[in-house]
């Protein structure tokens, strides 16, 4: 074997090992969710019992319902606000633009825990009772910047003359937005919405601080359960959440690939 082929071979093996490092833990987790054993990490046979347990656990169903309510509400609100913001920031130059820019970057770059306790302090001092609403508000807050970034990336390749052409042909600003701008940035808007949705349904840190009694979400529920100890039920619940994010990710990437 010559040196170059040898190098390629070593490279492929190395990459395979890293992919194994990335996927084996998740794979084992999913496999164990079908394992017919309460305690052991050794394969005892196939079962769907753990999924059945989930289905009958009222608290878990409640948490799932909360997660979906928060996820959908936050996604819709953040996508609307974020898309408008991206369009406005792309189109206009105004004083305070860099301030707004920084305010959008801060939630992304600072450790999430800081925003979490800031929102907790904000709600507590404002005497807002913690619950579903505070979760929704917090989730909208950390989703908006990501939507703005994704939509702005899409707008970066946008020919501004298209909007002018529409106006020139008699379209009002609103008609221009609906008939020309929005259809063209739609892949970005959808990708931003999907990203917001996964961020929302996976969020632990910020939710941890702004959730109230009786308004737990699935990740918070998993966190609490893991603290109690490892159980096959957690494996099953985690597998479901992983499947959802997988589906959303693949959809988002497919949209992005087609848009290019």
């Amino acid at each position: 074997m010559d040196r170059r082929a040898m190098g390629t071979y070593v490279g492929a093996v190395y990459a395979a090992l890293v992919y194994a490092f990335l996927y084996l833990p998740i794979g084992v987790l999913v496999a164990l969710s079908f394992n017919n054993s309460r305690l052991n990490a050794v394969w005892q046979g196939f079962t769907l019992d753990w999924y059945r347990v989930l289905w009958h656990d009222r608290l878990i169903l409640e948490a799932a319902k909360n997660t979906l309510i928060i996820g959908f509400t936050a996604t819709i609100a953040a996508t609307m606000v974020g898309t408008l913001a991206a369009v406005g920031m792309y189109r206009y130059h105004f004083r305070g633009k860099s301030v707004l820019d920084s305010m959008l970057y801060i939630p992304i770059v600072i450790p999430e825990i800081v925003l979490g306790i800031a929102l907790l302090a904000f709600f507590a001092l404002g005497k807002v009772p913690l619950g579903l609403w505070t979760l929704i508000l917090a989730h909208i807050t950390f989703c908006i910047p990501f939507v703005v970034i994704v939509v702005r990336a899409r707008l970066a390749g946008f020919d501004q003359h298209l909007e002018e052409a529409a106006m020139d042909l008699g379209a009002s600003p609103w008609q221009t937005f609906v008939k020309v701008t929005l259809p063209l940035i739609m892949p970005g808007v959808v990708a931003g919405a999907l990203l917001a949705f996964t961020l929302s349904i996976d969020d632990v840190i910020i939710s941890f601080f702004v959730a109230g009694p009786g308004s737990t979400t699935l990740p918070l529920k998993i966190y609490a359960m893991v603290k109690q100890g490892v159980t096959p039920t957690i494996n099953a619940l985690s597998s479901i959440l992983l499947l959802v994010t997988l589906l959303v990710t693949v959809t988002a990437e497919a949209i992005r690939a087609r848009a290019h």
Partner: peptide
């Protein structure tokens, strides 16, 4: 794509998967 998928999935669950592997009675 195979790098992006873990990037999008829950960090809590991925942490948990290592607990499943590493704990005393773990894999």
């Amino acid at each position: 794509m195979l790098i992006i998928i873990p990037f999008w999935s829950s960090s809590l669950i991925r942490t948990y998967s290592w607990i499943v592997l590493l704990r005393t009675e773990g894999v």
